[in-house]
Simulated scan of single mutants.
Amino acid sequence: MDRIQDLLRRVDKYAADNGVTPATVCRYATGNFRLYERIQSRLKKLEDDAERIEQFLDNREAVPASPEPQPTPDPKCGPAQAEAV
């Protein structure tokens, strides 16, 4: 996450130094003028998700165990043959 934040800071500085917007920098670099905004949104979502996980761990809530997956019988076999497979 620090790498992405550092990258956004570099883009911001480059944009300011060259009199363009960060979206323009991303468009020149990748052809995608929406990329800068999308990276910011993804980073925000990742930070929100990380906070939720940290709160969960801090509260020591138990995670319900998921049941063991059951094998799916082969529809080509009869019931007796499916158990033997």
Score class of each variant (00 low, 15 high):
residue 37 E to Y: 08
residue 60 R to A: 13
residue 48 D to K: 10
residue 75 P to I: 00
residue 37 E to P: 00
residue 55 Q to I: 09
residue 6 D to N: 13
residue 47 E to F: 08
residue 55 Q to R: 14
residue 59 N to V: 04
residue 20 V to D: 04
residue 48 D to P: 01
residue 66 S to V: 13
residue 66 S to T: 15
residue 63 V to Q: 09
residue 78 G to I: 03
residue 35 L to K: 02
residue 53 I to A: 12
residue 71 P to S: 06
residue 14 Y to G: 06
residue 27 R to P: 00
residue 9 R to F: 07
residue 68 E to F: 09
residue 45 K to M: 12
residue 85 V to Y: 11
residue 18 N to H: 12
residue 26 C to Q: 04
residue 44 K to Y: 13
residue 35 L to P: 00
residue 19 G to H: 03
residue 52 R to Y: 07
residue 22 P to S: 01
residue 32 N to M: 07
residue 35 L to N: 01
residue 47 E to R: 15
residue 78 G to N: 15
residue 37 E to L: 06
residue 81 Q to W: 05
residue 64 P to R: 02
residue 53 I to H: 08
residue 34 R to W: 02
residue 62 A to E: 15
residue 54 E to H: 10
residue 42 R to A: 11
residue 63 V to L: 15
residue 52 R to I: 05
residue 11 V to K: 00
residue 20 V to G: 02
residue 2 D to S: 14
residue 12 D to C: 02
residue 53 I to Q: 11
residue 5 Q to Y: 05
residue 14 Y to N: 08
residue 39 I to M: 05
residue 66 S to H: 12
residue 71 P to F: 03
residue 58 D to S: 11
residue 66 S to I: 11
residue 9 R to V: 07
residue 28 Y to D: 15
residue 5 Q to A: 09
residue 10 R to N: 11
residue 2 D to P: 03
residue 13 K to S: 14
residue 79 P to A: 08
residue 22 P to V: 00
